[in-house]
Design a protein around this nucleic acid. Structure first.
Lengths: 131, 131
DNA sequence: TCGCACACGTTATAGCATAACGCAATTGAT
DNA sequence: ATCAATTGCGTTATGCTATAACGTGTGCGA
């Protein structure tokens, strides 16, 4: 899917995530954007929904939080499964992709005739610095 | 970890999950157990915390819900990563384990010197019947 | 110009999870 | 036996996450 021009709200949410060191919850984003006119959670959630749809943002299910995608171009072609390591110490999130895992999961789901729509892989632990 | 004798509350929560067709949210469990004396969310969450610790229950991060483990004995030795397929149609959840994925993830995290504590793999989609 | 799609704004509400307090039962070392 | 520590329990209150429902405005093609 081609990424359309972002609206004003979408741009502000995207910028907040891009400039953040780590993942942000929707309400944290809201707080960051209050100065710029945001008043209600839905303004954030609606923007996030679109950014997720465009593949510019990922949702971290185990944190109820969101991060900017580190390689949005690759997603224009919607390649593959995205996985994350999440450090419990410093909060750092690293996105990665692995074709072997993707193929293995694909084989396993095909074996049970399961039609995959979205795959979540999140690894919680401690990064090198925080070990 | 050896599983200790469950307390009364833990047993009731475990039974609710075991007898359920699919995953249950904490508040759904609470509602099911009101007749048996449950009054507050914490009663459920505290029981769930222990059941998770004992490996008798899994948390589905993408649903904010819980399921009984389908193979609790294997977990007594704390083998491996648990993965799930989750059908958006009928709600059916299938737990599975795959050593190849586990090894691949292990290699990838070791490469970034990341110390894994918990791995979440959840595949949303449609099962054979609901495709 | 009419109708439609879409983004937006607001209020209210629903759903998920934990903080903080105190009490009761158990255990186990002295 | 007794005291201290641990663990589970019950309750109230609160906080965080997410969506429902309604209406407004704008752009654009039939």
């Amino acid at each position: 899917m081609a990424t359309p021009q972002l609206t004003k709200n979408q741009t502000m949410v995207m910028d907040a995530l891009s400039h953040s060191e780590g993942p942000l919850s929707a309400y944290t984003i809201l707080d960051k954007l209050r100065d710029q006119g945001f008043r209600a959670p839905l303004q954030v959630y609606r923007a996030l929904d679109k950014l997720l749809e465009y593949g510019l943002v990922h949702r971290l299910e185990s944190l109820n939080a969101f991060v900017a995608c580190t390689c949005p171009h690759e997603h224009e072609h919607d390649h593959g499964v995205t996985a994350f390591t999440i450090c419990e110490g410093c909060g750092q999130v690293t996105e990665f992709h692995d074709i072997a895992i993707e193929q293995r999961l694909s084989a396993l789901t095909r074996a049970q005739n399961f039609k995959t729509e979205k795959t979540t892989i999140e690894i919680r632990g401690h990064c090198q610095s925080c070990a």
